[in-house]
Design a protein around this nucleic acid. Structure first.
Lengths: 347, 347
DNA sequence: CACCTCGATTGGATCGATCTAGGGCGATCG
DNA sequence: CGATCGCCCTAGATCGATCCAATCGAGGTG
């Protein structure tokens, strides 16, 4: 609302009004104006009203740099921004970043992007941290076994990770993650409910903890429903043609009626094989992917896919970050959110 | 390189070293240290070396807030970040943002994201501008007829637009854009070279200047090659099923052998219709899309698509922005870049 | 009535960098 | 040999906000 009042000043003067200008015009001290902005409760109602009036008239807005210098904060959150790998369907970053920006805005933060350099994974972090350019970081690539989390912890830099510390049991930082196993369980149960019993899994190589986690959701749900998983699993690279090949082999050897995939990329491979074999997705064979990427949404036969609640992830991250930065006790070290299933024609 | 030297200081002290600390330790004045960082030429070589040594030892890095306050700059570039619309294939933003972040880094800038609100399109800009939180903006949504460009011009705020000012002949701001007509011309010529003569166009509604521009590339190239365009064009909404319907109608009425589309989204629709009619993309009918989105890359039958040189766009934008901010004369008011064609199996 | 409390307000110091003006000193020149 | 010039460097002021300690006046207490 204060924001709208400012708008009334239509043209920005050559040099914007300062707190001192407001103070003089309103006939109060600088501190009083500062309080009007930051601690309105301290002012007498009539004084507050007068100061606010003046602020609106002048279109005053506190100078960020000055405030940052004095308070030793920046209201900025650093995020290393790496683009989606070309050739994969993973466009989740886009949605996540947007959610993060929105959630940040809500509590007065802004998101600062900096480039990632795989050869020097902590370079960007180090610079921003040392020059006190950001208050905290959101780390999104912990799963790569990258040293950021450990390094930031050691530097006592505030940060929250999107992603569990899979390898490192000693990691003591806070994190938010999505329960991939639960998502795949959801997908598997969905297929079972549709009457499928021979449901195949196409996932990533064994050295991917995320992949193994998702796979466990499939195994668990199959077994809970008394179904066998033998001969129905495949572990491949996360590229389209690997998914296609795996699907071909599984169809020949085990005759599944449905596929659950660790990614939309792999699911696209499955769809390709079905297309070649003149099998109709959804009618002849069901397919489910993971990430609800644009590909899943735009593909002519809509691809059913596990959708991560990235909006909620962002909100939780910001909430936790705020707690960290205001030195409130952080309740839990990790937060695990449940994905949903975007059901389309392919299942 | 300075960056790496800093790294040697392994643990961040509770309060980072200041310029004064460096000065005292090196036995010089604060200004000399400042010069060592910003104007090394002013120092005698031996003094410079000594100061640099000390900077490295202490792991000093200038405090951003203090510098910003004094210099009245922030080294930040504001970018309103709206997510790709769900249900369309447009993931170009992702790639563009990354390119922008990279290009910014190169000249010492960082990218600050802020959320967009369609109901209050200038709110975010106004806030950041008035609080001197950013030095400049990159505006990406000029084509919507949004008032940002005009408003920012009026405020004398430095900004560069990605996108031409289509409607507004009086717009005097600088911009960078991609020549969509040239891209479609490229695609059309490519199809003609492959022997196609009946090439259809599926584009957007007439009120989209971008769509009409792209369309003109098709018209121009067809005519240049002595080919007719009558009965071969369709203008629809940018959603998959509209593309599918348009393709069906065109196939029935005009029997084209190839389709050029204004977007990958529409191209997906065409592919869907081909699939239903058991026509093989690339063999029976050629299809070309626009934007080289992830969908185009991941779709099992790779979709040939016009690819915008977003990396170059980002570089040009940053270059122009720097010129603006350092008050150098800006050579040209607008820069138009040529797209390329990512050729895949669909053509 | 002197003393104390408490809410509202104030002036000076401060955050850490850069800008400005000027000082020291050796080399050059009349 | 003293004046002048340039190079290298220094000290104090400054950017615009917030922190801190202190002040002022009104009201309550013994």
């Amino acid at each position: 609302m204060a924001r709208n009042e400012h708008r009334t000043a239509s043209t920005l003067p050559v040099t914007p009004p300062t707190l001192a200008d407001v103070a003089e015009r309103a006939g109060v001290s600088r501190q009083t104006v500062s309080n009007a902005v930051n601690n309105p409760d301290l002012l007498r109602p009539d004084t507050l009203e007068r100061v606010r009036q003046t602020i609106a008239e002048l279109g005053y807005s506190p100078n960020r740099a000055a405030r940052n210098l004095r308070t030793r904060t920046s209201s900025l959150i650093g995020l290393r921004f790496a683009p989606a790998q070309e050739g994969t369907a993973n466009a989740a970053m886009d949605r996540f970043v947007h959610s993060l920006v929105e959630a940040s805005e809500g509590v007065g933060y802004h998101v600062l992007l900096f480039p990632g350099d795989d050869e020097d994974p902590i370079g960007g972090y180090d610079n921003l941290l040392r020059s006190t350019a950001v208050d905290a970081f959101v780390v999104t690539d912990t799963y790569l076994g990258n040293p950021q989390a450990a390094w930031l912890s050691q530097q006592r830099a505030p940060f929250v990770a999107f992603g569990r510390p899979w390898h490192d049991d000693e990691a003591r930082h806070v994190w938010v993650d999505v329960d991939g196993a639960a998502g795949i369980a959801l997908a598997t149960q969905h297929l079972i409910d549709r009457g499928h019993t021979r449901i195949a899994w196409i996932g990533w190589r064994k050295d991917s903890p995320i992949g193994e986690d998702r796979r466990s959701g499939w195994v668990r749900t199959m077994h809970q429903n008394g179904l066998s998983t033998t001969g129905l699993a495949s572990r491949v690279e996360d590229v389209v043609h690997s998914g296609a090949e795996a699907a071909a082999v599984l169809l020949d050897e085990s005759a599944p009626t449905a596929f659950v995939c660790a990614s939309d990329t792999l699911a696209m491979g499955v769809l390709h094989t079905l297309w070649i074999r003149q099998l109709a997705p959804g009618r002849d064979i069901a397919v489910v992917g993971f990430d609800d990427s644009q590909v899943a949404q735009v593909y002519p036969v809509g691809l059913t896919s596990v959708r991560q609640p990235l909006e909620d992830v962002a909100v939780e991250i910001i909430r936790t970050l705020r707690a960290l930065l205001t030195h409130q006790p952080v309740e839990t070290r990790g937060i695990l959110l449940e994905p949903t299933l975007a059901i389309r024609e392919s299942s």
